[in-house]
């Protein structure tokens, strides 16, 4: 059986202090609660009543609430808290541009960096466009309310221009990239240099080693417990 304390320990002992150090503790906590709460609302009752267990805490009609079920719900929720807070601490403290520069400096190909970063700047553009398309089709008498059939009829006039418009832009965007030597072979440089100390490098390798060791150890525990 996996130790229930691990996830809670990492969440409280590592991730929250780390978020605080990055200066994003408040938003991280807010958003962790925001995403976990609705899950908890379903997870706790569902698992308390339906997870197999023997330690009965409560009986309502022919449903029984077990301690094992409650514990399992807690395990899932605490793991999700770790997942969510780690990702949020990262995404709230790093701008896409910083990430791009760092990746390029670490030798990641500019093509991959482009794929990962440009969507962030494209999202607002596409949203504006979506709003314009909605307005343009309403101006042509398209209704967006009504029964299921009427609403379904609005789907194609909204979706097709947005996607087609994006596709039509692809050619010119590709040419604009080529015009700026995007596919030039050979040595590339970076205007912005993000400082990277030897200590930081060791720390990253240390984290990587820890993760591998931890996963290996927990797997080993898992299998030996079965034997």
């Amino acid at each position: 059986m996996v130790d229930y304390g691990w996830a809670t320990g990492i969440f409280l002992g590592v991730l929250l202090p780390w978020s605080a150090w990055l200066g994003v503790l408040r938003p991280v906590l807010q958003r962790v609660v925001w995403v976990i709460a609705p899950l908890a609302l379903f997870l706790i009752p569902i698992h308390s009543f339906f997870h197999p267990g023997t330690t009965v805490l409560l009986t309502i009609g022919h449903f029984t609430l077990t301690q094992e079920g409650l514990a399992y719900a807690y395990l899932i929720l605490s793991r999700l808290a770790v997942l969510a807070s780690a990702l949020l601490a990262f995404s709230l403290s790093t701008t896409p541009a910083e990430l791009a520069t760092t990746l390029t400096q670490q030798g990641v190909s500019p093509a991959f960096t482009y794929l990962l970063i440009s969507p962030f700047q494209l999202i607002p553009e596409v949203r504006t466009k979506a709003a314009t398309i909605l307005a343009a089709q309403q101006a042509r008498g398209m209704e967006t309310a009504g029964n299921l059939w009427q609403r379904s009829r609005a789907l194609v006039p909204l979706v097709v221009p947005l996607v087609l418009g994006a596709l039509v832009d692809v050619e010119e965007r590709a040419m604009a990239l080529e015009a700026r030597a995007f596919r030039a072979q050979g040595y590339k440089t970076s205007l912005v240099q993000i400082p990277d100390s030897v200590a930081q490098r060791w720390f990253r390798w240390g984290l990587f080693g820890f993760t591998v060791a931890f996963v290996g150890w927990s797997q080993w525990q898992f299998f030996t417990s079965r034997i």
Binding site: L134, R151, L162, D169, V170, A174, L177
Partner: peptide, 26 residues
């Protein structure tokens, strides 16, 4: 290069279209 410019737009469409059509409640 054409694919490389297509992919970011496709990603954004994946992320944005759901919100766009949410007013149709389908």
């Amino acid at each position: 290069t054409t694919t490389l410019t297509l992919i970011p737009l496709a990603i954004v469409l994946n992320l944005v279209l759901g919100q766009t059509i949410s007013l149709l409640k389908l």
